[in-house]
């Protein structure tokens, strides 16, 4: 099945050229300004429909997409599995076919299966945004992380960016590593050996299993939580043991550059991978990331909704 005109989707960072990444970031700058106005709304997507289809729990991402759509004047519909026909056994294909019949312009999908957004593109005329698929990708998180770094540091190229935590189960780590590498940063990934995926080096990153070494001289330190819901076996000893070796506290952060910033995509497990003193400290940009999320998602919806919904399914 193919559409007559190409519909723009955002399925992963892997498909993006550096030029496209910069287009998303530059467009987001405009919407960042809109979000700080007295009237935080523009009429641009009036008459467009955005469906947030979430098969996994989410607070930040779903709210962020909803606010982004509303600030663009789109009509936003939220569907979460706990309240939908999915609990009656409807499969993803049937759900999408039914939603398609209601003519949405953009479908934002979060799904536990890697590749689910790609599958959905085959059955809709809408633009599809991957809001996190399994352990595969989370492209809008990577874009908002890049946006936050660029605002804080003025650039991304040549920065040393350390990402530490549950690398194996983290779609954020994958998308971030690819995006920051594409923009010329030096990315270090750090985790216990049991939480480092095989073949991760092929993304052109440095791999560490020792946090002090990974943090040494870094411009950006990003911490990730342990994804307990995806752990099927005992990959870490105890929470306390993990925290002692892989948690970011003030003493550990002192190894980074004096002006290093601290990031976390949330949700945070305070006292496990990050000490509250650091999370709430002056170098934390964790809430800047959340603010950036709305601007970046406005840019994504803006750039996708324009072409979407106009080409017939054949």
């Amino acid at each position: 099945m193919s559409a007559t005109a190409p519909v723009r989707h955002l399925l992963g960072v892997e498909d993006l050229a550096p030029r496209e990444i910069v287009q998303y970031l530059d467009t987001a700058e405009v919407f960042f300004e809109v979000s700080r106005r007295k009237v935080r709304k523009v009429p641009t997507l009036r008459g467009k429909t955005v469906i947030n289809l979430f098969y996994e729990a989410s607070t930040r991402t779903r709210t962020s997409f909803e606010i982004a759509g509303k600030r663009l004047s789109a009509d936003v519909v939220n569907i979460s599995v706990s309240t939908s026909s999915v609990t009656k056994g409807e499969c993803l294909l049937d759900t999408v076919k039914n939603l398609e019949a209601m003519r949405p312009d953009v479908i934002v999908l979060r799904h536990p299966a890697s590749g689910a957004p790609n599958f959905v593109t085959q059955h809709t005329r809408a633009g599809v945004v991957n809001a996190g698929d399994g352990t595969h990708e989370h492209p809008t998180q990577a874009l908002l992380d890049a946006f936050t770094v660029r605002r804080a540091k003025g650039r991304i190229a040549d920065l040393v960016i350390t990402i530490a935590g549950d690398i194996a189960h983290s779609r954020v780590a994958r998308s971030d590593a690819m995006l920051f590498t594409a923009l010329g940063a030096r990315v270090r990934l750090c985790a216990p050996r049991t939480l480092l995926p095989v073949g991760i080096e092929r993304y052109g990153v440095e791999v560490h299993d020792d946090l002090p070494r990974a943090v040494e001289g870094a411009d950006v330190v990003m911490m990730l939580r342990i994804q307990r819901e995806r752990l099927t076996e005992a990959l870490i000893p105890t929470t306390r043991e993990y925290s002692r070796k892989f948690g970011l506290n003030a003493r550990m952060l002192a190894r980074a550059k004096p002006d290093a910033i601290v990031m976390h995509p949330g949700p945070m497990n305070r006292g496990v991978e990050i000490d509250p003193e650091v999370a709430d400290g002056p170098r934390s940009v964790i809430l800047d990331q959340v603010e950036a999320g709305v601007a970046v998602r406005m840019a994504v919806l803006y750039l996708l909704a324009g072409e979407a919904g106009q080409s017939p399914l054949s």
Binding site: R8, Q23, T27, P43, T44, L45, R46, G47, K48, Y302, L303, L304, A305, G306, E307
Partner: peptide, 8 residues
């Protein structure tokens, strides 16, 4: 805007 989009 709806038809002129996307304006990069």
């Amino acid at each position: 805007a709806a038809t002129a989009l996307p304006n990069p």
